[in-house]
């Protein structure tokens, strides 16, 4: 037994150094030089302040903003230091309640909209931090935001298009509208441009 102890301990020490210190530090070093912005969280700054990350969603409940997906993080939605899904099973009454509440909120924010609601807008994401909504979910909200902000729907649809991350290589995954980028762009439109 003892004759195996020296190789066991020296191997563990050696590999802890190589794979646990040298490897992550080397990757960190290269990343910080070659991809500094990405390696540090794709942070968005506005007027010298951090306003979020282009990869991390935020909660919006005002009718003047596009809403993100439901976030199940605790103790508040889009808590980016505690990622989590809802983990509701398909028959869980709590799932039904959250979904119905969201539908009611959408309807009360825009009572004139009788279109069916795209499913991603009434369900929680896996991470609780999903930065995207589907194009359909953005288009569903265009009439409301246009009315609240006095901006033409056409301008808004163009803006949605600009804030859409397409499928990678036009093939992988799904296209998604980056909600934070979209809402930041909304705030930049002076009201005078309204209709």
């Amino acid at each position: 037994m003892l004759k195996y102890l020296r190789p066991a301990l020296s191997m563990l020490l050696f590999f802890s150094l190589v794979t646990g210190v040298l490897y992550p530090l080397a990757v960190t070093g290269v990343s910080q030089v070659v991809f500094p912005s990405k390696a540090n969280g794709s942070i968005i700054e506005k007027n010298g302040r951090l306003v979020g990350s282009s990869l991390i969603g935020q909660q919006f409940t005002s009718a003047k903003y596009f809403w993100s997906r439901i976030s199940a993080t605790g103790p508040f939605p889009y808590n980016a230091s505690s990622s989590s899904g809802s983990n509701y099973g398909p028959l869980n009454p709590a799932l039904m309640k959250t979904t119905k509440d969201r539908i009611d909120q959408l309807h009360s924010a825009d009572s004139t909209n009788h279109n069916t609601i795209p499913v991603d807008l009434v369900t929680a994401s896996g991470s609780g931090l999903d930065p995207h909504i589907s194009i359909a979910a953005a288009l569903y909200q265009v009439p409301r935001v246009a009315r609240e902000r006095h901006i033409s729907e056409e301008t808004l649809r163009e803006l949605v298009h600009q804030c859409t991350d397409p499928r990678d290589f036009g093939f992988l995954g799904e296209p998604g509208v980056n909600v934070l980028r979209l809402n930041l762009a909304l705030d930049d439109i002076p009201p005078s441009q309204g209709v």
Binding site: I103, V119, S127, S134, I135, A137, L139, E174, G176
Partner: peptide, 23 residues
């Protein structure tokens, strides 16, 4: 409930609870 779960070019559709939009 008036929820659109049908997949289309604009909507991933399906059971999206616990899934990410980009995927």
């Amino acid at each position: 409930l008036g929820v659109d779960q049908h997949a289309s070019a604009l909507n991933p559709g399906g059971n999206m609870e616990g899934k990410e939009t980009r995927l």
